[in-house]
Structure formats: structure tokens, C-alpha cells
């Protein structure tokens, strides 16, 4: 539950989070230049999702629209319930260049690794 560039710990989510919010599922994909974080947030429009970075903590949240629906079967949240999840960012990530895109229920966040933190070959002189 811990890795060196992105830490996801639920303990972060207990502070300041909406208690009624659910914790969306996430994928983390890495390559040498960037890390990609995918969050499963179906049922929300781009304008409803909030993202912030404070002191190395990336917070993603969205306010649920309470709807009066009678469910016969309820297996996933589709925009009625609030969303909250946070990730502790490693200092290697260039927070100035973080990008995000919402497409068909998936919020993709690109976290570029800072130039100075990239692995490089050192030539022997």
C-alpha cells in the first residue's frame, strides 16, 4: 500500500474529508518520465471535480448530487455520492506541470517527474 512516488494512505482521507464521501478506485501507471494516476469517477462532469495540491498532498474530490432514487440493485456510485481521495506526492514530481483530463468516467492525472530527479547516466571522465 506504499510506493516511493505516490503514497496512498487512507489516513490522509480521514482529515478534512467529507465523511459521506466514497474512496474511488485508482490505477497508477509509471514510466521513466511520468506517473499516471487514473481514478474511476463515473457520473461526474469535469466542472464538478475539484483537484488541489497542498503541501505535497494531491486531493481529488467531487460533491455528490443527492437524488431520490429507488434502487433495486446498487453496485456502484454514479454521481449521487461524494468522492474524496488523496495521494501523498513524492518530491520528485514536478507539481507545476501536473495535468488532468476527464474522459468517460476516468480522471487521468499526469504527474511528470522533475528533470533533476530523472535517472541519468553519468559518464566517467
Amino acid at each position: 500500500m506504499y510506493n516511493h512516488l505516490l503514497a496512498t494512505r487512507r489516513s490522509h482521507d480521514k482529515t478534512g474529508a467529507n465523511k459521506n464521501a466514497y474512496h474511488p478506485q485508482a490505477n497508477i501507471i509509471e514510466n521513466e518520465n511520468e506517473w499516471k494516476l487514473e481514478l474511476l469517477i463515473p457520473g461526474f462532469d469535469k466542472s464538478e471535480i475539484k483537484m488541489s495540491i497542498d503541501n505535497g498532498l494531491l486531493v481529488i474530490s467531487a460533491e455528490g448530487r443527492e437524488v431520490d432514487t429507488k434502487y433495486r440493485r446498487h453496485e456502484f456510485h454514479s454521481g449521487a455520492k461524494s468522492v474524496y481521495r488523496s495521494f501523498k506526492l513524492n518530491h520528485k514530481i514536478d507539481t507545476e506541470k501536473i495535468g488532468a483530463e476527464l474522459s468517460n468516467g476516468i480522471l487521468s492525472i499526469t504527474l511528470p517527474i522533475a528533470e533533476e530527479a530523472k535517472a541519468r547516466e553519468i559518464s566517467i571522465s
Binding site: L40, K70, R72, R73, F76, S103, N104, G105, I106
Partner: peptide, 22 residues
């Protein structure tokens, strides 16, 4: 995929969680 099934007076509706598709 996960599904929600809702019922109203006039209809049933099924929602399927199907992210990232077209």
C-alpha cells in the same frame, strides 16, 4: 461490470459502470 437497477412508476433503468469506452 457493476450495475445499478432502478425502478420508477413508468420504467426500469439499468446503469452499467463502463468507464473509458466509446
Amino acid at each position: 461490470p457493476r450495475a445499478n437497477v432502478m425502478e420508477s412508476k413508468t420504467s426500469f433503468s439499468i446503469q452499467l459502470a463502463a468507464p473509458g469506452l466509446s
